[in-house]
């Protein structure tokens, strides 16, 4: 199993897709404006929380009492006062339909430890903290791993700020493994979709990666597929350890095949693979050494 590393684009995509509703805590401890400051202090101490929303009898959000307010209460000896006099009433709130990215922006801007979630009538629906976001993102990542979605390496090509749009995907291909064939291509396709590449170029890339992947599965012992994606192009490199190609020009001819009868029965080995790649890639380069292996490099310009 390969290491998976997550890139910034992935997190950004998740945080745009997820809404505050997906991550908020619904079961919120609340107090009323006429509760005492000392009650709030005790609840915070016992429940280890750092802020409590204050709502009126109709459930409308009236304020928030935070640790800072409590400290002020202690200093000024106002523990027996009602919360309404100490609570913060200038609130930064968020709506359930807002994206997690919106929430992250607000946390960054206002430096609060929590945001009350309210509906259009100012009714308190829940609360969201940076911890909720981290937890949910981790969950999504783990769920993705279970689905075998992220057993691939996606990483920016360069740490350079200018190159942050460049992404590299690397997937191992097992020779002879017809049960998992197509997985490398599927992963590349998924990433291209996530990146918003248009469907025509996704299709081109799918054909090129699939045929190159199948060539490794059919002919080689093992290989790997690397896809580099920049705003200008998709570069697909498939390298293998295998028998190599004796005559590349002959191999490129449609209908020429060295595949076994068994492979042909599966609907492969009709001598169309390289011809397909040549037809759909904008640029194709093949290098091969008999007895060692083959390296294919194809480009699709975006």
């Amino acid at each position: 199993m390969q290491n998976s590393s997550l890139n910034f684009e992935f997190i950004e995509k998740l945080s745009t897709d997820l809404t505050v509703h997906d991550i908020m805590t619904n079961d919120v401890i609340t107090l009323k404006p006429d509760n005492k400051v000392k009650n709030a202090k005790e609840i915070m101490r016992l429940r280890k929380i750092s802020g409590i929303p204050i709502i009126n009898n109709s459930g409308e959000l009236k304020g928030i009492i935070s640790i800072d307010d409590i400290i002020r209460g202690l200093e000024e000896n106002r523990l027996n006062d009602e919360l309404r006099v100490l609570m913060s009433t200038e609130l930064i709130t968020i709506h359930p339909d807002d994206s997690v990215a919106d929430a992250l922006r607000k946390f960054k801007k206002y430096k609060y430890g929590r945001l009350p979630v309210i509906d259009k009538d100012n009714l308190l629906l829940g609360i969201v903290t940076p911890g909720d976001i981290t937890r949910k993102l981790l969950e999504e990542v783990e769920r993705g791993s279970e689905d075998d979605e992220f057993f691939l390496q996606i990483k920016p090509l360069d740490k350079n700020e200018e190159d942050k749009d460049n992404i590299q995907i690397e997937v191992e291909i097992e020779g002879g493994d017809f049960n998992n064939s197509g997985q490398a291509s599927s992963k590349v396709k998924r990433v291209l979709k996530e990146l918003g590449v248009d469907s025509v170029n996704i299709r081109k890339a799918a054909i090129v990666t699939y045929e190159a992947e199948m060539n490794v599965v059919i002919h080689a012992r093992q290989g790997r597929l690397i896809a580099e994606i920049t705003p200008e192009l998709i570069k697909i490199i498939v390298e293998d350890e295998g028998p190599g190609i004796e005559d590349i020009d002959l191999a490129m001819q449609p209908g020429y095949s060295t595949a076994s009868e068994h492979v042909r029965e599966l609907g492969f080995g009709a001598g169309m693979g390289l011809a397909n790649i040549e037809q759909w890639a904008d640029d194709l380069h093949l290098e091969s050494e008999v007895g060692k292996g083959t390296k294919l490099e194809a480009k699709i310009y975006l």
């Binding site: 197509g182 997985q183 291509s185 609907g267």
Partner: peptide
Amino acid sequence: SGELWITLQTHQNIVAVASLV
């Protein structure tokens, strides 16, 4: 994309193709 594929092939690789296309 969107076409319905009629075939005699029954092994699992047909799914990968249908999904990719």
